[in-house]
Simulated assay, not measured.
Amino acid sequence: MKQLLAELNDRISFMGSSKESAQSELENFHKENPDFLAILEREKVELQVEESKLSQFTFEEARIEAAVQKLMEMKESLVSQKSSAAEIIEEGKQKMDDLKSKHKKK
């Protein structure tokens, strides 16, 4: 138990000195870069602006993708209708050719 308490005390001392060391480094950094917080805030605002742009682009991309999908469906329908019309025309031409050949035989 005494050993555990000793280890715990050692850890607490180490953590205390680590905290003091980190705080000292932070203070030195702030002295070297007094406008750091202003720079950080400006970067934060710029990041928010870019995130907003990304959101708009994502929305616009989804809107365009939906429009493309709708156009593809319309195209498929049109191609199908065109194919049906071509078949009807071909059948009509065939009937006309058959009628002409029957008429010539008479």
Rank of each mutant, 00 (worst) to 15 (best):
V45E: 09
V45P: 04
E46Y: 06
E46A: 12
L47S: 13
L47C: 10
L47Q: 12
Q48D: 11
Q48P: 02
Q48C: 07
Q48F: 04
Q48V: 08
V49A: 05
V49M: 10
V49L: 01
V49E: 02
E50V: 09
E50K: 13
E51S: 06
E51C: 02
E51R: 06
E51V: 02
S52D: 11
S52Y: 01
S52P: 01
S52V: 04
K53G: 00
K53F: 03
L54S: 11
L54P: 08
L54R: 11
S55Q: 12
S55K: 11
Q56G: 00
F57G: 01
F57D: 02
F57L: 05
T58K: 10
T58E: 09
F59Y: 05
F59N: 12
F59H: 13
F59Q: 15
E60N: 04
E61A: 08
E61W: 01
A62D: 05
A62T: 00
A62L: 07
R63G: 00
R63K: 15
R63P: 00
I64N: 06
I64Y: 08
I64F: 04
E65G: 00
E65H: 08
A66G: 01
A66H: 07
A67Y: 04
V68W: 06
Q69H: 12
Q69V: 04
Q69S: 14
Q69D: 14
K70Q: 12
K70I: 11
K70Y: 07
K70T: 07
L71S: 11
M72G: 04
M72A: 12
E73C: 01
E73K: 14
E73L: 13
M74T: 12
M74F: 10
M74E: 15
K75C: 09
E76T: 05
E76L: 06
S77K: 11
L78Y: 00
L78W: 02
L78T: 07
L78F: 05
V79W: 01
S80H: 08
S80N: 01
Q81A: 08
K82S: 10
K82M: 06
S83N: 13
S83A: 15
S84Q: 15
S84F: 05
S84Y: 03
S84L: 14
A85E: 10
A85G: 02
A86Q: 06
E87P: 09
E87M: 00
E87I: 07
I88W: 06
I88K: 10
I88F: 07
I89Y: 14
E90F: 10
E90A: 15
E90S: 15
E91P: 01
E91N: 14
E91G: 09
E91V: 11
E91Y: 09
E91K: 15
G92C: 06
G92Q: 10
G92F: 05
G92V: 07
G92H: 03
K93P: 03
K93S: 01
Q94I: 01
Q94C: 00
Q94G: 03
Q94V: 06
K95N: 07
K95R: 11
K95A: 09
M96A: 14
M96F: 05
M96H: 00
D97H: 11
D97S: 14
D97R: 12
D97E: 13
L99V: 02
L99H: 03
L99D: 02
L99M: 10
S101Y: 08
S101L: 12
S101Q: 13
S101D: 14
S101K: 14
K102G: 10
K102E: 15
H103G: 04
H103F: 13
